[in-house]
Amino acid sequence: MTDSELDDLLQPPATPTGGGLNQRVWRRTAGVLRRRVWRRRILVAGAIAASFVGGLALSFRPATLHTSESTVIVKETLKPSTGETFVSLTDLEQQAELADTGERARLYFLAGQRYGAERGDWSAALRCYKQALDAAPQAAEQIDPKTDDWLLMALKIERQKE
């Protein structure tokens, strides 16, 4: 084989024009790219939605924590005086019912606070607070935001209006 023949074999063939190969390949590759962009957008949107849902879920956490903090505070305020044992709510309400007028009011207030704070049982708390205010009507005149919960404050305000 001569050098000239070798050069002929190695010469690049003429590239055909037309036929639409260029456009055809362009459409396919651009399509791949566009689909990738859409996939990414969907993923980003999904991530944002997931973050939103996660944020919503987390937003309930502080409320829960707040409740437990209240519980701790209330428990501290409701601790019986020295020498007094910490009784169950049922027993406490029963003791209140059987106690003298002054002590009765104190025990009903205590029971009402504990029903609300420990169990979230506001109907039981309402029952006890009503009993306490009936036993000591003068207590309705003083509202103490540090020790009175929202229900007791509302009842006192109601009593003051009467």
């Binding site: 055909p16 036929g19 390949v25 396919r28 590759t29």
Partner: peptide, 16 residues
């Protein structure tokens, strides 16, 4: 030419 078109197309798709 026929084979080249297929290879060119496939090459660009792999590249992207």
């Amino acid at each position: 030419i026929d084979r080249a078109e297929e290879i060119v197309q496939e090459s660009w798709l792999v590249a992207v």
